[in-house]
């Protein structure tokens, strides 16, 4: 199941684990990224908490946790090479995997059509 947030994150949900990243639209708006800071595995976040930070040449931006849950894995590849977020934001440049506290809560997020309408 693929879901989106109004804060421009995507979630690919498999059972109770969501792989989370930022959308192509968000990556384009941020411009060339030069730094990514990711949460540690084992840390827990509530929906709306700042879970990661991305920085372009010009500015820092927060990436919010899209749902309540626990980080089970972070993607070291984008820490090593932040430009991956610009080149493949909805593929190889996922940010973290989140074990959802309440998998049903994902149903309330945007589907792809609704998200596309949001950024159109």
């Amino acid at each position: 199941m693929l879901k989106f947030t109004e804060e421009h994150e995507w979630l690919k949900i498999d059972g109770d684990v969501a792989t989370v990243g930022i959308t192509e639209h968000a990556a384009g708006q941020l411009g060339d990224l030069v730094f990514v800071e990711l949460p540690e595995a084992g840390s827990t976040f509530s929906k709306g908490d700042t879970a990661a930070t991305v920085e372009s040449v010009k500015a820092a931006s927060d990436v919010y946790c899209p749902l309540d849950g626990e980080i089970v894995e972070a993607n070291q590849a984008i820490v090593d090479d932040p430009s991956l977020v610009n080149s493949d934001p909805q593929g190889a440049a996922w940010f973290f995997k989140l074990k959802l506290a309440d998998p049903d809560a994902a149903k309330a997020l945007l589907d792809e059509a609704a998200y596309k309408e949001l950024v159109a």
């Binding site: 411009g31 060339d32 030069v34 372009s56 040449v57 010009k58």
Partner: peptide, 12 residues
Amino acid sequence: PVQYPEGVLKEH
């Protein structure tokens, strides 16, 4: 203009 399609990094 804050940037053109080339982006800040390439422009710099």
